[in-house]
Design a protein around this nucleic acid. Structure first.
Lengths: 198, 198
DNA sequence: CCTACCGATCGGTAGG
DNA sequence: CCTACCGATCGGTAGG
């Protein structure tokens, strides 16, 4: 007997839910919307998932894991300068974002609808992620590689620029994810002024 | 007889609604939430407002008007360089944002719940606003003042950084709105690298 | 600004 | 995966 769940159905539900949450927002997306798109009755969704929020949780924490994994890889590599490390962080973040822009947008815009303890857990993870960037900035400032600008301010500027990318990124566009990350990194590090180039 | 509406009550409703929409999101905020906070019955709200969406419309389009007004002022002033004009645009935008961070966050995060034709109108206005920034960048690039970087990319980076400010800005903080705008502007124009300073 | 109320829709469960 | 259904809540109206 087939006692095993079909994982593909659950995966399909989450993919479609991600699109709905992104387009209409989590609260405005109903389970009946989701059921209609999948082609089953709303009640039938619950043989695959426990609750609406479970879907949101899976999206948010899967993305969080990917962001951490991407910068963890960089830590184990030899690095010349903090400028290089910062660029690698930015490129890594861009690559995660562009791999699934819809899930990223849900991650960015809908996390506030998580209930406790997931809400606090999420906020905490985000702080720790930001700290990883801040540390790079701080080290670069200590080494006189960067100007003594407020690190938090710089990191928030970087991350907000990065997190806007899923709003316009198209896979068929001119720039690859890596190029986008590099361009952003260069712009922030060197500026846009023509006589400021090293 | 007092045939005139009390405008202060309506204003109070919009202020509280703004806070609710910002905290819980537009869809997750109910008219009963709003009524409770104000201390009246939900049905009584409708003697002051036409609908829930009317409140959202007022918030979104009032903010849009303020953003345009702020940069319109700059056009009529003498300007030395495009770097200076860009800085003034950025400072002006920062000042509008910091004047009412809650309304700004609703403006940024909840506009997608506007119904037609307001939705299209809003999207259109945002495009026109972005174009004003793009024009400054383009002129600066033509004059060799800026590096020949993709203007749209730069403007989206600038605006996304600016639009993140209401998430952390506190009036009692170290930097004034003007200083925040100037620092952001300087960072984007000159970069954060120590040997890139003019 | 209130009472009384509307039809629609919500997330989710029982029991197959 | 379905039928049948639950209590709760939604935005909003009628009529004072």
């Amino acid at each position: 007997m087939s006692g095993t769940e079909k994982p593909s159905r659950k995966h399909q539900l989450e993919t479609i839910a991600t699109r709905l949450f992104k387009e209409k927002g989590y609260t405005a997306s109903s389970m009946r919307d989701l059921a209609n798109e999948v082609g089953i009755e709303a009640a039938s969704l619950y043989s695959h998932i426990k609750s609406k929020e479970e879907i949101l949780r899976n999206i948010c924490f899967r993305m969080a894991d990917q962001f951490f994994a991407a910068i963890d890889v960089i830590e184990s590599k030899p690095i010349e300068s903090m400028a290089e490390k910062l660029e690698r962080f930015i490129v890594a973040h861009t690559e995660v974002i562009t791999r699934d822009t819809e899930a990223t947008l849900v991650f960015i815009n809908e996390w506030k609808h998580l209930s406790e303890p997931f809400y606090s857990n999420f906020v905490d993870q985000r702080h720790r992620y930001e700290s990883r960037f801040i540390e790079v900035l701080r080290t670069g400032i200590d080494r006189k590689e960067f100007l003594p600008i407020d690190e938090k301010f710089v990191v928030l500027t970087i991350l907000s620029s990065l997190n806007w990318i899923p709003n316009w990124y198209k896979p068929e566009g001119k720039m690859s994810p890596k190029e986008i990350g590099q361009q952003l990194s260069r712009m922030l590090i060197d500026g846009i002024k023509s006589d400021s180039r090293q």
